[in-house]
Design a protein around this nucleic acid. Structure first.
Length: 374
DNA sequence: CCTTGCCCGGGGGCCACAGCCTAGG
DNA sequence: AACCTAGGCTGTGGCCCCCGGGCAA
């Protein structure tokens, strides 16, 4: 086996912890009672088995390392973090230190599966979706926050619903298309060629299938995902969404105007964003929420079932969000970090360095084989 | 209200090279 | 069909330049 394959497929310490039960899926929650990390499906199955099990307190797994129970919720980063990651991230700079973090309360009861009322857990749309979909918690707060966030995704155009529906393509019936890339691509009647999409979104259409070791999204999926995030964030922040919306309109001359890099990296949002509680649309109690409107902003023409389906899809997409940069080849990262630089650029290694490398080549190779611990 | 100049932040390009992929022998 | 080789391509991180937005005059 090649070095890169070893390092990438070898399951280094940085990979998300796998479910202790099924050993196949990435864990999403940590059950304190069972001292076990569980994926969504196993959690649903195990804790729905009986009443006692359903009372087990669980916490989400840290969204950064995906290996430890989350202890804090950073409102600015919209992330549940373990103590280690929290310390690491929020000691990075003064702005990060100002992020408001709150302890994460344990969740118990039915996270997934059917529930009796509309305000409680929702029925799953299908058995397969039960595997992934986090439906609700017993805590009203969490439910409401999720509802609000999901609702913000369903908004056609917050604050401009009444006036702009005819201009962009964000018409009522097209929200679905916006939420789903494939549908979106077809719905715009191929107004964007591949070239256009690359031009405007900067995401090449490329399949990494051949080179891919790590499961990857297609370029379109990534791009669409970012679009979703942008829309979502704009909704949350109350920003004028016209600019980014225009990027999806039929006017090909308008490009995306809002940078996504901070979303991509997703570790420490800088600037004033840190002062805004952006992670949850629900503002702290006692504050005025200028941005998220009353439920009447919801598109009233959506049938309950349709809305439910969209919320479900939103939640699934939310679960698959990847804010952090994905390292596909840990060995390359290792090489890059070891490589000599001149003003940040890679520099040629000197003859002496090459000789040293050759002398210790066996050691080096062995070392790269076990590299992926980032 | 418009123009000009300055400041600041962020994005993207650049670099070398190990390893992967593919075509051809 | 299996194997080998050569050449092209990809991905990786840190720094710096350039561009655009914001602000004041």
């Amino acid at each position: 086996m090649l070095k890169e394959e070893i390092s990438d497929a070898g399951g280094g310490n940085d990979w998300a912890r796998v479910c202790d039960t099924c050993r196949s899926a990435a864990c999403t929650v940590y059950c304190r009672a069972d001292s076990a990390y569980l994926c969504a499906g196993c959690d649903a199955r195990v804790h729905a088995a009986n009443r006692v099990a359903s009372r087990h307190e669980r916490v989400w797994v840290c969204e950064v390392c995906e290996r430890a129970p989350a202890a804090l919720l950073c409102k600015a980063d919209a992330a549940s973090l373990c103590t280690t990651c929290d310390a690491e991230i929020h000691s990075a700079n003064p702005l990060a230190r100002r992020h408001q973090r709150v302890p994460i309360l344990p969740i118990s009861g039915c996270l997934y599966g059917p529930l009796p009322t509309d305000h409680g857990c929702r029925k799953m749309a299908s058995a397969t979706e039960t595997e992934d979909g986090f439906m609700c918690t017993n805590g009203d707060e969490t439910i409401a926050e999720d509802e609000d966030e999901a609702a913000s995704w369903l908004l056609l155009n917050p604050g401009k619903n009444s006036t702009n529906q005819n201009n962009g393509f964000m018409l009522a019936g097209e929200v679905d298309d916006y939420l789903d890339l494939v549908e979106y691509n077809s719905s715009v009647e191929n107004q964007f060629t591949d070239q256009h999409q690359q031009q405007h979104y900067g995401v090449p259409h490329k399949s990494y299938g051949g080179d891919s070791v790590v499961p990857v999204q297609s370029g379109e999926a990534k791009d669409h995902f970012q679009q979703q995030q942008q829309q979502h964030q704009n909704c949350q922040y109350g920003l004028d969404y016209d600019a980014s919306k225009a990027a999806y309109s039929y006017n090909g001359s308008i490009t995306r105007t809002v940078s996504l890099s901070s979303v991509d990296v997703g570790i420490v949002p800088e600037s004033t964003m840190s002062d805004i509680s952006i992670s949850h649309t629900r503002p702290p109690k006692g504050t005025i929420d200028l941005f998220s409107g009353p439920p009447t902003q919801m598109p009233t023409q959506l049938a309950p079932m349709e809305r439910e389906a969209r919320v479900l899809r939103y939640r699934e997409k939310k679960k698959t969000r990847k804010f952090e940069k994905t390292i596909r080849y840990a060995s390359r990262k290792a090489y890059a970090e070891m490589r000599p630089r001149i003003k940040g650029r890679f520099a040629k290694r000197t003859d002496a360095e090459v000789e040293v490398d050759q002398m210790f080549s066996t050691t080096v190779i062995t070392g790269y084989g076990i590299v992926p611990s980032f």
